[in-house]
């Protein structure tokens, strides 16, 4: 079976973006970085095209990193391989409600 690819943009990143269709719970994806390093991770949850997975376990409040920069904080405990999106990631900017 063809291995699906996920891209890690920066060394500091703790999420990777999957550019593939048909990623369902239990699919194995190959996470690659710019240097060509790769790691196989089992995905937890169904992940649509262009969405993200966690590259390691994270505690609530921990910064989620992409492009080597903070894109928000974990709102729930996150395990390696989990689908990461608005259900477990909170923006930290533009928050008039905080």
């Amino acid at each position: 079976m063809e291995l699906k690819l996920a891209l890690k943009v920066d060394d500091l990143d703790n999420v990777a973006t999957i550019f593939a269709n048909g990623i369902v719970d239990g699919t194995q994806v190959e996470v690659r970085d710019k240097k060509g390093n790769s790691e196989t991770i089992t995905v937890h949850g169904d992940v649509p095209y262009g969405h993200k997975i966690a590259l390691r376990d994270m505690e609530p409040g921990e910064h989620i990193m992409k492009y080597g920069e903070c894109i928000g904080a974990a709102s729930h405990p996150i395990s390696k391989g989990d689908y990461v999106h608005v259900h477990n990631l909170d923006a930290l900017r533009g928050r008039g409600d905080l």
């Binding site: 928000g72 999106h85 990631l89 923006a91 900017r93 533009g94």
Partner: peptide
């Protein structure tokens, strides 16, 4: 700001936050 930025379409496309 969420709900306005990112837009619903951005979120469906995988963008989780304005950052």
């Amino acid at each position: 700001m969420r709900g306005g930025q990112p837009t619903p379409g951005n979120i469906a496309g995988g963008l989780s936050s304005i950052e």
